[in-house]
């Protein structure tokens, strides 16, 4: 494997966004790119990352390899990279280590690190293609604000999507709160628009602790997509350039 990223910031942000949910992960490398799928310890949330080969320049992967990496270790090493450094990942066939180099675009500084790999026995997760009843695309900063504000009051949020719009509601010891958003097109800045596409009304409840955690990915994309259907996990997607993405899935809370 040899994969060169123009900006180390992308990988730094991706790892930062997932490291509190999952610890030891396989980075599955093949000629289409680098993928990661892992459930959190409690088995109610799932992270799915896809960095397509087009996101790297150049990208070369001659044989499929799984790089078992501890994300705490990776975070320590990535801390040594500046956001605008050029980052290159390298691994041999049947590797013991993954090699990372950080090149400063302005100076002749080159740093190089090896991270020891681990054997991770991870079951393959067959994430199904799902037709969702409701899809909401909104500014990622808005979603972060809603989850942060409501998490101050309660552990859970009810998300209700109808043709009127989407409503986030919480109930806690000190009182209750809600935020409603309507479909809205911002003609000056499309990134600020709220798009809602609905085939049937949906109402589901989720743990805010996880949603707040997912919002650590907000720096990766101006927009976030929420996909909901009754009785299936919520999909929270941050799209990256070149069709790469970071997706989070969270099972709804169900009453009796």
């Amino acid at each position: 494997l040899e994969a060169r990223l123009e900006q180390a910031a992308m990988l730094k942000r991706v790892v930062d966004a997932i490291k509190d949910l999952v610890q030891d992960c396989n980075f599955d490398c093949n000629d289409s790119g680098i993928a990661l799928q892992a459930m959190d310890n409690s088995h109610v949330a799932l992270v799915s990352m896809m960095l397509k080969s087009e996101s790297f320049s150049p990208f070369r992967c001659d044989r499929n390899i799984a790089l078992g990496i501890n994300l705490t270790s990776l975070t320590k090493v990535l801390r040594a990279a500046q956001g605008d450094d050029i980052l290159t990942l390298k691994a041999e066939d049947a590797p013991d280590v993954v090699n990372l180099t950080f090149e400063s675009p302005e100076s002749d500084r080159l740093s190089e690190y090896d991270i020891k790999l681990m054997d991770i026995d991870q079951e393959h997760l067959g994430i199904p293609d799902t037709e969702y009843a409701a899809t909401i695309t909104l500014p990622s900063s808005e979603f972060s604000r809603i989850t942060r504000d409501l998490s101050a009051l309660s552990e859970s949020v009810a998300i209700e999507c109808t043709k009127e719009g989407v409503k986030f509601t919480c109930t806690g010891d000190i009182g209750n709160g809600s935020v409603s958003l309507r479909q809205h097109t911002n003609v000056e800045n499309d990134a600020k628009s709220v798009d809602i596409s609905l085939t049937e009304p949906v109402a589901l409840t989720f743990s805010l602790k996880y949603l707040v955690n997912f919002c650590k990915a907000a720096g990766l994309s101006d927009r976030v997509r929420l996909c909901l259907s009754n009785e299936v996990p919520l999909l929270v997607e941050y799209g990256l350039s070149n069709n790469s993405y970071l997706r989070f899935y969270l099972a709804p809370k169900i009453g009796d």
């Binding site: 459930m39 409690s42 088995h43 109610v44 799932l46 997760l125 067959g126 994430i127 199904p128 009785e231 299936v232 996990p233 899935y249 099972a251 709804p252 809370k253 169900i254």
Partner: peptide, 14 residues
């Protein structure tokens, strides 16, 4: 939490 885990299992197993 058991319900949530089961929802995930059904989702992933199709």
């Amino acid at each position: 939490k058991i319900f949530q885990q089961q929802i995930f299992k059904f989702f992933l197993d199709g």
